[in-house]
Write a protein that binds this DNA or RNA. Structure first.
Length: 315
DNA sequence: TGCTCACACGCAGCCCCTAG
DNA sequence: CTAGGGGCTGCGTGTGAGCA
């Protein structure tokens, strides 16, 4: 940063901010420059350099090697991570075009973050080959440092890819390992919730409903301890589904409440049917639109709906 | 060409921190 | 407590892009 360099040279010259700024700019503005809040004009830089008996290049020199570049790249990584989180992928393309993954001297953790942005971008684009390639690289590079949110994000993506490839067991392994590391070495945070939520989906695939239900209880516990919410609606749907799968139909009905959501209504109707309240189930089902497998956040809803319409239709 | 708007530059005043 | 160093906030000004 130019500001840091100016400060360094000023201190070497035994000058205060007041003395350096006097007659050139205000003392407060110099403070902003040194802190990096503002970018001074060349005119100001020239005057400052004269008083410090150096050249403007001396302000840049130190900065233009790796320090400045790292700062710039890091700033961009952070910027585009947010864009990826917001699924603003058209803008992320600008980042992809810069080919930062080609740069050699980027520190491993930063390189891992770059690969993760690539992986998530290519996943959006439907390019599975590149998604896998970059996800693996991200995971490999991010695993060189202590578990952090970027590593967790890479793990979540990897687990998602494994599940899509029909390797949910491998996804469970990597997720459980990361949960273990998080619990052992980290403060409780939202990553703990994300990992457990991903595990819930995997355990449901293996019909391990009890384990999945216990994980949801953990998530609710963590969320209330941290006083945060995470995908509340989806989480509630999964909780109802698990209550249904575990045969706790009364609890499922209670949790679903009076709702107009398709997914919840199907699970309510299913529970009503199981509780021999067939007429209510039938009425509710008739008032509920057919679930759309593409948009439904829970893939298991479709089979529930089929089973229900099969049984009730046969009456 | 003239208008509007956003943004960067620059400043004054105020506040906080720390050493003596 | 006081003085000096430094940071934060709000405001005015200049400038350039976009548009009719």
């Amino acid at each position: 940063m130019i500001g840091q360099r100016i400060k360094e040279i000023r201190n070497n010259n035994n000058l205060t901010q007041e003395e350096l700024a006097d007659g050139i700019i205000s003392r407060t503005y110099l403070s902003l420059i040194e802190k990096g809040t503002v970018q001074p004009s060349t005119n100001v830089l020239v005057k400052l350099s004269k008083r410090l008996n150096c050249t403007v290049n001396d302000f840049m020199a130190e900065v233009s090697h790796f320090k400045y570049n790292n700062f710039e790249i890091l700033r961009e990584i952070g910027h585009y991570e947010l864009k990826v989180d917001n699924e603003d992928f058209e803008i992320v393309k600008h980042f992809i075009d810069k080919e930062y993954e080609q740069i050699e001297d980027v520190p491993l953790p930063d390189s891992g973050r770059i690969h993760l942005i690539y992986a998530r971008y290519f996943k959006f684009k439907g390019d599975l080959k590149r998604t896998r390639l970059h996800a693996d690289k991200a995971l490999q590079k991010l695993s060189t440092v202590a578990v952090n949110q970027h590593y967790v994000n890479a793990v979540l993506l990897k687990a998602e890819l494994l599940t899509e490839d029909g390797e949910a067991d491998a996804a469970i392994d990597i997720l459980e390992d990361t949960v273990y590391l998080m619990t052992k070495f980290g403060e409780l945070n939202i990553s703990d919730i994300k990992l457990r939520f991903a595990l819930v989906k995997c355990y449901i695939i293996f019909k391990q409903y009890y384990t999945a239900h216990r994980l949801i209880a953990d998530i609710n516990h963590i969320a209330s301890r941290l006083n945060i919410t995470y995908k509340e609606k989806d989480l509630k749907k999964y909780e109802i589904l698990l209550l249904v799968k575990l045969g706790n139909y009364k609890e499922a009905l209670e949790l679903a409440g009076e709702t107009a959501e398709t997914d919840e209504n199907i699970m309510r109707a299913y529970s009503l049917w199981q509780l021999d309240r067939v007429k209510e189930a039938d009425e509710l089902l008739k008032a509920t639109p057919v679930p759309d497998e593409e948009t439904s956040s829970i893939p298991q809803i479709g089979s529930l709906y089929k089973e229900l319409t099969g049984r009730l239709g046969g009456l």
